[in-house]
Amino acid sequence: MSTPFYVSPQQAMADRAEYARKGIARGRSVVVLQYTDGIVFVAENPSRALHKVSEIYDRIAFAAVGKYNEFENLRLGGVRYADLRGYTYDRDDVTARGLANVYAQTLGTIFSSVGEKPYEVELIVAEVGAAPEDDQIYRLPHDGSIVDEHGAVAVGGNSDQIGSYLDQRHRDGMTLAEALALAVESLARDSGGNGDRQLTAEQLEVAVLDRTRPQQRKFKRLLGPQLNALLEQSGEGSSEDGPSEDSAED
């Protein structure tokens, strides 16, 4: 009969965190940026079927990196949580803060329960408000903590490098085309060495929470021609490096 080796609690938790971090670091990153009319989500994701960015509720969206089956489960739970809450109370009573709390509890419990494998995921929950000051972005790392973010945030593989690149260049009041251009530039740096990658519309998954949308549901995916037009526009915009044109949305 073998006696298990003693492992200190600190060591056990550090090992679990290390395991989760390594899993997350293997995947490509997702960036989320505020712009004048809302929040834009950009992921490098060639798949049209497996989404990294999705709608949760009227004003709330979700972005995730890591293991697909794990964050897909969390997305499902989030949609169910939001719809049930909206049905029980009112559509206005569903908030990103509430959802982020539930996610944090779920991730935290799984992370610290010895019987379960920690989730290798990192999430972003964002809610678009009536004005840019009312926007909320929460980052939820694998261990159940919540980080309140402003401006721009990156999660996934090279998130530190991409995040600092974004922090230096993101400013308030960017147009959608400008924000998108910055997001694509930052993602292109995630190359593991050679920095000169070009990301095309086919490799990107882009969605926005647009506060100017007349519908109750503010989430919208930017696809095909619309995305190409925006990318072209931003290409011109960044070469001039300045005067902001109005982005052609919808």
Binding site: L74, L76, V102, Q105, I110
Partner: peptide, 8 residues
């Protein structure tokens, strides 16, 4: 406080 299993 975590999401019940039915949610996931």
């Amino acid at each position: 406080g975590r999401l019940p299993a039915a949610f996931l």
